[in-house]
Simulated scan of single mutants.
Amino acid sequence: MSPFSMLRMLGLAAILSGMVIVQASAAPALVHSEPMSGQHVAAGNVAVKLSFDTVIDPFRARLLLFGPSGAPQLLPASPTDDEQQSIATSVALAPGHYVLHWRMRARTGDPAQGTLPFDVDAITAPKPGSHP
């Protein structure tokens, strides 16, 4: 039997035996956030954006915001682009310390989660006679 025939038979046997090649998958990793961890932002409407290193399932994303009162607030978020590697939302926030808890899944189902602490500062009016 020639080497070519032997390879052909082995290939056919592999197909017939139901061998499946499993695609490697990984949990999404946060690569950028707005606000960034530890950042101070001005009170008011605060934009929140999370970007990941892989395609996420935006319909299984969960964002919980814990504010100064300690009560959790579920934030709705939407994909920001066709690649679906980012989600974004905005929320009106008063001054205080906040922690955003995020939970994501890759399209393959692999979960990831993390926390993002940040502070919201009061908007201060300029002092009379001062220059910006």
Rank of each mutant, 00 (worst) to 15 (best):
A71D: 13
S90Y: 03
Q84Y: 00
L100S: 07
I56R: 00
L64N: 04
V120K: 02
V22A: 14
S69E: 14
F66P: 03
R8L: 12
L75H: 03
M6T: 14
I123N: 10
G67R: 00
A42E: 12
A14E: 09
A26P: 01
T89W: 00
A26M: 08
E34H: 08
I56C: 02
P128L: 04
L30D: 15
R62C: 08
A71F: 11
D121P: 00
H40N: 13
G11P: 02
A92C: 05
L16E: 10
H101M: 10
G96W: 07
L64M: 12
P58N: 08
P72V: 08
T89N: 08
V99G: 03
S37Q: 15
F118Y: 07
T89R: 03
A43C: 05
A27V: 06
V99N: 08
D57F: 01
N45C: 06
A29H: 12
P95I: 09
S37G: 14
L10E: 13
S90G: 07
L10I: 12
V91M: 12
T124R: 14
S86C: 10
G67V: 01
A14K: 06
V91G: 03
Q23K: 11
Q39I: 04
L74T: 11
H32L: 12
G114W: 01
V22M: 13
G18Q: 11
L30C: 14
S33C: 08
S37A: 15
L93I: 06
I87F: 00
L63W: 09
L64I: 08
P126C: 04
L63P: 02
V20D: 04
V20G: 03
F52A: 05
A125E: 14
S51H: 04
K49E: 13
M36P: 02
L50A: 11
S78P: 01
